[in-house]
Design a protein around this nucleic acid. Structure first.
Lengths: 191, 191, 191, 191
DNA sequence: GATGAATGAGGCTTCATTCAT
DNA sequence: GATGAATGAAGCCTCATTCAT
């Protein structure tokens, strides 16, 4: 139960995030969202025209936040490897610190409930990765491979890594898993 | 109305597979499944107690078939690399030849609509992979890494590879993608 | 689970009696009756055209059996009081020994699931009671009251008495209740 | 469509009462109740979580009303006989004036559709009767009999009396029946 | 006589959405 | 802005009944 607070819209979004990951899109009635968020049924539909609009907004917001977190400090690094290393650490750290958002992204990555345009907008935030890869290839740091393929495989591998790291029981173990996982990925792509 | 029909149960499963991947679990009314399968509403519930039972059965069946396809001929290979190479080719080939089943597996891998027990049964078919990895480590062919981590990352990477390969426009291009993708994976794990 | 035995019809009737009292008419699917009776779904509909036909047959059978049990030995008694006393004992004894049938009669006495004709047939078995009362009035043993009223009230009171007697915990207690109850009734009607 | 309407909940309860007595619990679809009550399907389920909840509420309400009607003015009477006499008149008068509620109570008195807790609550309203009987016994006005037995038999007899009185064709005849019936009951229990 | 797979109308209930207050 | 009673289409599932074997 989140307290109404000044911003009902925020409360609705936060509640929806949790409930959608716990129960799925259709498993979560809008009535439950508004009840848990501490607002009236009608209020939800004042801020979001439809239920789909709500999940779309959520999807865009979470994807954008995730992309932002991944980029943090990347411009300071010089080599492609360093950039990718930092990016990997950022990604894994964010995924572990925001399990609900991570789960949300995975669950709705292929979902038909999210509109095509939201999917596209979400994807667009990550296109800088493709450039990064292309740059690394040009500089001879990364193997000459179709950039889209590398992009796809990196994304998949990151996701697997976060899942593995989340299962770690101690902080030390987690660090080890992350380092090994990032090695796996870097070995796969380095020249 | 009593047509001999080969097997209504099969028809229901096949129809459900297609519809679930196209429209999601909740987006597919049981009435649509039965209509498309050419059976009466009640017939679906004669063979499957609930809609969840239907998707569970489907999930178990597809996972089991996928695992079987991946193992094909693996015992003939000697080295861990050769085994993994063949396994990778098998996986990618099956994924490309069975796009609907592949999509189904991805869509419902993290889904709450599939029962926990079905998820566990599905996972169990792939545990031999863990043994394979462990064996490779022992023989010094694979890097010394937590096997579960490698297992997770391989699975994720395969899935990314199949997605990429499915986008290829010519057979040649596809072969190239697959080879490069399997290289990525092998480079990530080899000793 | 009754064994199929030679007479499937009997098995169906016996099973239906139990299930109807336990779960009501609509709460008992014909499929459950046939399963518990150890016969196929179709078999039930071979012996009884419809589900209503089944409950009608049951109702007629039980009512007729109850009436027969009540009359037992009544012709040997001379006075109206003696006849009624014996009748009361018979009724209570039968009700206690056949709780399922008793419950069935009570439950479906006012039920719309039993056809009007079955209700009438059931009632007809008890009309001799009215004659008995009329006779007692004529002989001056029973108060001069509208016979139908006495009939109704006797029937109601018997039913209450059986319910009370069924709750008795020891045989002695039960006998006492029955005697007191029959006194209540007789005091109510005697001249 | 948003009519002010006095109270939809009341309309639903009143309609359900009539329909349940006319057609039974399972014979009355919720869709028919809402249609006859002039509300939408969903409205019924806004006020009552399930169909069972509806009949439970109805049962509690009717039983409570019946008990209240029976007690009216009882405290003014001094002797046990006078109290019971008034109580009997009250009961019969209410039963005759509220035939639908009366039928409803009889029909669902032993019904499995009404929850056990509702049955218990309904019964509890009539426990004062037991005290009344106990008091009469102590004062020597009523025969020394197990009070629960008398309670049961009185209740049954009242019900039979109301049924008989309802069949009366003239007001005079009805008064006669009621008086005779109450005599029957009082003779049965007086010391 | 006996079986049980197949049928499909119909029941209960959910839930996104509206709108008068 | 906010509320929540009201709506009604649509979904899942049940079950009496049939009929080819």
């Amino acid at each position: 139960m989140r307290e109404p607070g000044p911003d009902k819209q925020e409360a609705i979004l936060a509640t929806a995030l949790t409930l959608f990951t716990e129960r799925g899109f259709f498993g979560t009635p809008t009535s439950l969202i508004s009840k848990e968020a501490g607002v009236a049924t009608g209020t939800l539909f004042f801020y979001f025209k439809t239920k789909e609009d709500l999940i779309d907004t959520l999807y865009r917001q979470v994807k954008s936040e995730a992309a932002l977190a991944m980029c943090r400090g990347i411009e300071k690094e010089k080599t492609a490897q360093a950039k990718l290393q930092r990016l990997g650490h950022n990604a894994v750290a964010w995924g572990i610190q925001n399990p609900a958002k991570m789960k949300f992204m995975e669950q709705f990555a292929h979902s038909p409930f999210v509109s095509t345009s939201a999917h596209e907008e979400g994807m667009s935030h990550f296109l800088f990765l493709k450039d990064l890869v292309q740059d690394g290839i040009k500089k001879g740091e990364i193997r000459t491979v179709e950039p889209m393929l590398l992009f796809c495989m990196m994304a998949s591998a990151f996701s697997g890594l976060i899942a593995s790291a989340s299962l770690a029981e101690t902080a030390d173990e987690r660090v080890k898993i992350i380092d090994e996982g990032l090695d796996f990925i870097w070995n796969g792509m380095k020249a």
